[in-house]
Nucleic acid binder design. Sequence first.
DNA 1: TTGCATCTACGAAATCATTCGTATATGTTT
DNA 2: AAACATATACGAATGATTTCGTAGATGCAA
Lengths: 134, 134
Amino acid sequence: MFATNNFVDHLMKPTDAELEILHVLWANGPSTVRQVHESLSQSRDIGYTTALKLMQIMHEKGLLSRDAESKSHTYTAAVSEEDTQRGLVDRFVETAFKGSASKLVMQVLGQHKASQQELEEIKQLLNQLNNEHN
Amino acid sequence: MFATNNFVDHLMKPTDAELEILHVLWANGPSTVRQVHESLSQSRDIGYTTALKLMQIMHEKGLLSRDAESKSHTYTAAVSEEDTQRGLVDRFVETAFKGSASKLVMQVLGQHKASQQELEEIKQLLNQLNNEHN
DNA sequence: TTGCATCTACGAAATCATTCGTATATGTTT
DNA sequence: AAACATATACGAATGATTTCGTAGATGCAA
């Protein structure tokens, strides 16, 4: 067995609002506050300065990096989608399922429709894990 | 297709501290504040009146019911573990994975060790889902 | 019945997340 | 250069969560 991801412990837990912003940056790449605000506005009401403030705080926390060359700064996600989701899943499994990851999986699979292809991918991963066990 | 669980929308979202208490009650059944507090004390520092206050609030919210016959009240979880976890998963898939349940499953399976038996159970569920697709 | 242990009720502080208004800086256009 | 549009910085209100101290009720024991 190899050492696993202890670094997850040090990852900041983004709040819900912060996650919204990270999703925009992960999807669109480096963006200005205005661009992020416009994207967020499509799904909910949010003031421009609210988005700005959030991104400033996220920059302080180290969740975003920024380039301040021009008048309007350009922000970039400083944490990867994978690492962040890994950390979130860790916490979630712990708080909601008392550490039982397989219970979570069962719950999710039973509750959400997945496409044929998605099911295949999951099966494939399962077989792979099965082999590692032997 | 049948109507699915719209009632999930109306389920209160328990906070982290509230979830801790629900887990105790789900595991041990109806309990007094003292019993719950003793259980919680095993995993972390928490004052007696803190546990009491939390359970009073949860009672107000409808998360717990209580029997006030004797001097010390007996509390019972008023929401089921299944329903609660269903609601939590819904939110989590939405905020952390933008609705992609299969991405969540892949992330969890890749990240957490599951026993041979757990993997088998999951596979079985997958096959079942596969059949429903055809 | 007086006192002691234990309970509930409740107020309130501390922290955090979210929100936005206002002030000020910056750069562009006339 | 003056005016305008647009940017950042920042203070502060609000609401939710967690925490615990203190007061007062309750029941049992001496």
